[in-house]
Computed example of a mutant assay.
Amino acid sequence: MTTMKTLEAPVRLDSVHKTYGSRENAVAALRGVTIDFPAGSFTAVMGPSGSGKSTLLHCAAGLDEPTSGTVTLVGTPLAGKSETELTELRRDHVAFVFQSFNLMPALNVEQNVMLPALLAGRTPDAAWVAQVIDRVGLSQRVKHRPGELSGGQQQRVAIARALAGKPAVTFADEPTGALDTETALEVLSLLRELANSGQTIVMVTHDPVAASFADNVLFLVDGSIVTQMAGPTVEQVAARLAQLGAQAKQARRQR
């Protein structure tokens, strides 16, 4: 399989294997994954349950260490880095958007968005923070705490927080999983905008509608990339997922 190769790719995995457990209890979560995520690209990662989607994302972000192979994040090979070095690298260049919003309940919208900069010892850019809060449609809610916001509004705070640090890469794990359809589409449109402005977005999702916002979809089965789809439509993604699910079921029956 050919993969897009670019020197500027902010995220690169080369022959990445990840095995949990040992000997007879060993489970291979990733099997020799090689892929580049170019600057300004929006990639959806899909596959049946247990296919290695979240493991791929965690290895790419330096949250989990591959058993073998190399991961390069914003030009930095992650092998041999201490936890402190990895934390600093992520803090300066990476943002995360998860299904759980991970907001501080005692802080208001503005304070939550500013928090990563404060934790990094930087003075938040107040004008930029106001701009990103406006961009996610929460200018009227800046003094509200998470408990006073809907789920969709909380997710938008999480995206504003990600935006505020001007990261090179945003990793999103099922970011619309807990949202209603209308709010999910708003969040996906925001992620699409981020990619259009030059950020690299890597999103794990099971939703064909979410995947249709991406430039490219990677389909994983049993820890391997089995196919890719450029310019995906909802119908194409749904059909491919159904096909892969049927193949996986048949393979399990034959074992």
Rank of each mutant, 00 (worst) to 15 (best):
Q154C: 15
P146V: 06
T181Q: 08
K143M: 12
A164L: 12
G177Q: 10
L149I: 12
E186Q: 15
Q153P: 03
L190W: 10
L163Q: 05
L138S: 01
Q153S: 07
R161N: 03
A172P: 05
P146D: 12
V142L: 11
L149C: 12
L191F: 11
A158M: 09
A168H: 10
E186F: 04
T176F: 05
S139E: 15
A162N: 05
S189C: 08
E174S: 08
G177W: 09
A164I: 04
T176H: 00
A164Y: 08
E193S: 05
L191C: 10
E174L: 06
E193W: 00
A178Y: 00
E193M: 07
A168F: 00
A184F: 11
A158Q: 07
D180P: 07
V136M: 09
T176S: 12
A158S: 10
Q154E: 08
D173V: 00
L149P: 07
V187T: 02
E148G: 06
P146M: 04
T181E: 15
E182L: 02
E182I: 08
A172I: 01
A178P: 08
G152A: 02
P167E: 06
V169L: 01
E148L: 14
V169T: 00
H144V: 04
L194K: 03
L179Q: 05
L138R: 05
E148N: 07
L138Q: 02
T176P: 06
D173I: 08
P175G: 10
T181A: 14
V187D: 04
S139I: 13
A184T: 09
G165N: 15
L188F: 03
L190C: 14
L138D: 04
V136Y: 02
G147D: 14
G137R: 08
P146S: 07
L191A: 08
T183P: 07
S189K: 12
L194P: 01
T176V: 12
G165S: 15
L188Y: 05
P175R: 02
R145A: 01
T183R: 06
K143C: 13
P167C: 11
H144W: 09
G165R: 15
T176R: 09
V169F: 07
V136D: 04
E193R: 13
G152F: 01
E148H: 11
S189V: 04
L179V: 11
P175N: 03
A178D: 09
R192E: 10
A164F: 08
P175D: 06
R192A: 15
L163A: 01
I159S: 00
G177F: 02
G147M: 04
